[in-house]
Nucleic acid binder design. Sequence first.
DNA 1: AAATATATGTCAACATGACTGACTTAAAAT
DNA 2: ATTTTAAGTCAGTCATGTTGACATATATTT
Lengths: 164, 164
Amino acid sequence: MTDLKSVNNPLFLREEELRQAIELLFFAYRDFTAGPDQILKDYKFGRAHHRVIHFVGRNEGMTVSELLDILRITKQSLNRVLSNLIQRGFIEQRQGEEDRRQRCLYLTEEGRSLEQKVSRVQRELVASAFREAGGEAVAGYRKVLTGLIDEANRDTVLNRVLKP
Amino acid sequence: MTDLKSVNNPLFLREEELRQAIELLFFAYRDFTAGPDQILKDYKFGRAHHRVIHFVGRNEGMTVSELLDILRITKQSLNRVLSNLIQRGFIEQRQGEEDRRQRCLYLTEEGRSLEQKVSRVQRELVASAFREAGGEAVAGYRKVLTGLIDEANRDTVLNRVLKP
DNA sequence: AAATATATGTCAACATGACTGACTTAAAAT
DNA sequence: ATTTTAAGTCAGTCATGTTGACATATATTT
């Protein structure tokens, strides 16, 4: 007997396909963050610290406001994590040269070393997935993920991601 | 002057490409979860509740153990969320027929309705990204995300995702 | 039948990382 | 001189994760 769902409901396959895509993203993201989480545990840092180290590493000299804007958390939330990273010598602040209210953020030697260590496992995972999937698939991955980014600030985000 | 990085370090472009892919996933996942989060707030539910509703919805009659295995959290963590959902009538449990120690999980009418509502915004987002990107890109997206899933249980996960 | 293992639930204590709201300080902009 | 902005801080709350210890019912093994 033919499956009633596909006969009677032409949207079924499409909905099913979308649900699969959603779960795939869930599981991929879960495993994508597992490696860094493991390493950071040794330093008693969490995912929040990781994000700060990552973005400061890629945007040396960025201000606190810029970081808040990327992370989309409150400054109170950031502050606990950030002051912890500063106290423990992974990040340092310098007063802005033009605008002296700003605190520009930099990784210390130690911070850079941790960033590298954590980043490496993640890059190796992605590199391996890219190798397995092939160049065309990688282009597709980028296209789809780009489309998932909120349209309202997609350009802003892409500029940040692509402009190193 | 030519950029020294690309001249002296042939790995630079590759590393940069990988870092971009990583950030892309971060931002895409952030916006991918924003829609559901917004809706769930009205119900005073969080992302944890969403995950439970999602997986129970797609695996009606699954046991608590199976759910724990998917979510990778402790049963104490799950219990808080799950008993909340049961109390408020979004999920119901039935004793397993073969193994009466098991509690099999089902969405109630209300649960199914919430699942649909939340799922819809997420499916619409993914559908829109898929449309923009095209069929070939979608295949690539799937390939790469599959490769990001931990190899040790990739088959298990894929079976769960693809076998509806 | 008795002992052991498994599925589930529960109590308590704690950590992390989010939130809101109120307030301060220094510097820039008007 | 006044207002706005960038950053920091204090205090309290919530959501979601963790350990560890223990209870109960049912299956499985001996």
